[in-house]
């Protein structure tokens, strides 16, 4: 069964059958009912590919993301999917695993699949790859602070301001040395943290010692980091982990090694997770608005997809603000701070 036969059986033109599916409001009700009755009788559904080739839209967007193993990425996916769903689009999901080559290939495949737009999370495209995509002609949004991947729109979190707020809090509690455990697979947030730290130092006229090393973004990674610092005999005042799981691992290591948190070592995480409020002591975190990040970037994308000429008149960069959630693990003892005010 195809659209031609349906048209023949209903005694209407192919164009009319097509209108019944795409613009039913433009078809006389009795004609529409006759066509629908026949399609139902013969269990006919329009050929999705053929339909979209004609309409010039496949109602799909692609999301290229390094992984699905962190709360941050999961929430970004959820945010993108929510807005796409609101728009009646489906999302094709491509896991790039932090590999530039894989990302580049996915982009080419997505072009051949005629997606309407693409969102790239933490792109690793080289400038030469980006140059090759110049003629791509598909709207693209980048999630993360990267101007080299050739995306015309960008959406990212203000890590520097986040670091400033966290370190301001730590410094206010009298902490003078900070070690950052960053994610060896994720963004190196060291430059932003250093920038935030310098702002605090300048403002409070205090020097804060800072070092950083990389570790796996897992409980294991956090555990090993504490073990390493203890065995090297250079325990700082505060350990800041990139991920919440690392902080949980650090908490376990501290318990195993009879270290008191926050007495011997203060602990904070650069990413929040529901578990951080459940453990004892509850862990001070930065809450990253990841779902909102996904939603905002999808909206930038759809603005462009829906109206090529729609110049929003504002910068095509959107910056979102993380929120400091002060709990117990850095030495705060005020209940009221836990209300995050």
């Amino acid at each position: 069964m195809n659209i031609r036969k349906i048209a023949e059986l209903a005694g209407v033109s192919v164009a009319t059958v097509s209108r019944v599916f795409n613009h039913p409001e433009r078809v006389l009700p009795e004609t529409r009912d006759r066509v629908l009755a026949i399609t139902e009788e013969y269990d006919f559904t329009p050929n999705w590919f053929a339909r979209n080739l004609t309409l010039g839209s496949t109602k799909t967007i692609a999301l290229l993301i390094p992984g699905i193993d962190s709360d941050l990425y999961r929430n970004i996916i959820s945010g993108v999917e929510t807005v796409a769903g609101n728009k009646g689009f489906v999302v094709i999901f491509c896991q790039t695993r932090g590999d530039a080559e894989a990302e580049f290939n996915f982009l080419k495949i997505m072009k051949s699949r005629k997606v309407d737009g693409i969102i790239q999370v933490r792109s690793l495209l080289t400038p030469s790859m980006a140059a090759e995509l110049q003629t791509f002609n598909i709207p693209r949004v980048h999630i993360g602070k990267n101007r080299e991947c050739g995306c015309e729109m960008m959406c990212y979190l203000d890590y520097e301001e986040a670091a400033y707020r966290l370190i301001h809090h730590l410094s206010g509690l009298g902490h003078q040395s900070i070690v950052l455990l960053y994610d060896n697979q994720g963004d190196d947030i060291t430059p932003e943290i250093e920038a935030g730290l310098h702002r605090v130092s300048r403002e409070l006229k205090r020097s804060i010692r800072f070092t950083a090393f990389a570790g796996e973004n897992s409980a294991q990674g956090g555990y090993l980091a504490v073990q390493r610092m203890v065995q090297n005999g250079d325990l700082p005042d505060v350990l800041v982990t990139a991920g919440a799981l690392q902080a949980i691992g650090a908490l376990k290591a501290a318990r195993d090694m009879n270290l008191s948190i926050p007495g011997d070592l203060a602990l904070a995480s650069f990413n929040d997770s529901p578990v951080c409020s459940v453990v004892s002591p509850a862990i001070t975190c930065l809450e990253m608005p990841a779902a909102k990040l996904g939603m905002a970037s999808a909206r930038l994308l759809f603005d462009r997809i829906e109206d090529d000429d729609q110049d929003m008149g504002v910068s095509q960069e959107m910056i979102l603000q993380p929120k400091l959630k002060i709990r117990e693990s850095c030495g705060n003892t005020t209940d009221i701070f836990e209300l995050f005010d």
Binding site: R299, M312, V314, M318, Q321
Partner: peptide, 16 residues
């Protein structure tokens, strides 16, 4: 919105 760019975007959106 919590940042200037967020507020600018929402402003433009509701104007549209």
């Amino acid at each position: 919105g919590s940042t200037a760019s967020e507020i600018a975007y929402l402003s433009k959106k509701v104007e549209h």
